[in-house]
Amino acid sequence: MNFVRKFPKLEQIAPVYAVAVVMIYAWSLSRFFWRFPSWLYYSSAGEIAVIFAYMMVVNLIESVLVLLVPIFMSVILPKRWFYEKFVTKGALLTALSLGYLMYFDNHLHYQNPFPLELVYRTPFILAGILITVFLVDWIGVLDKILTELSDRLIVFLYISIPVSLISLLVILVRNIF
């Protein structure tokens, strides 16, 4: 199957996933520690641990969903377009997309009018991100930087994956039994 041959290998997936994990988990953790002092005041350690567990599970789901995007692109596009530079292009696509989502999130409020202008602008921004991703072939330095950087971020997976799986177990036990 052509699709299977274009499915990235684990060593290709890991650095891209690491980029997603660092951005998603760092975003959540920054907010977690911002709220943490007040939680200490009115919550027990166990309750704070449960909040942390829910957060880690959501982060796990989000990071996997984000990872599916470059994998999907690798599988459906011609091999030369994405698969052969999966780490570089996947890492750049993930970083830019999540960066835009961070900007989007900062403008999002339930009670205020939904930021429709941002929604209308999003296709153009996504097109810009895709063009940048495909232009990376022509910028050798950026290619090297992205590969090296994403490779070094893999170390965070050794923390995030076990903690997220333990959190998932905690949430499952609390909700099933």
């Binding site: 951005m23 998603i24 999002l108």
Partner: peptide, 21 residues
């Protein structure tokens, strides 16, 4: 705990802990 974790923190309208969902 789910209300406190999700509605009041992870998916809260201000400063959500969730970046994607």
């Amino acid at each position: 705990m789910a209300v406190r974790s999700l509605d009041d923190f992870v998916f809260k309208e201000h400063e959500q802990a969730s970046i994607f969902l």
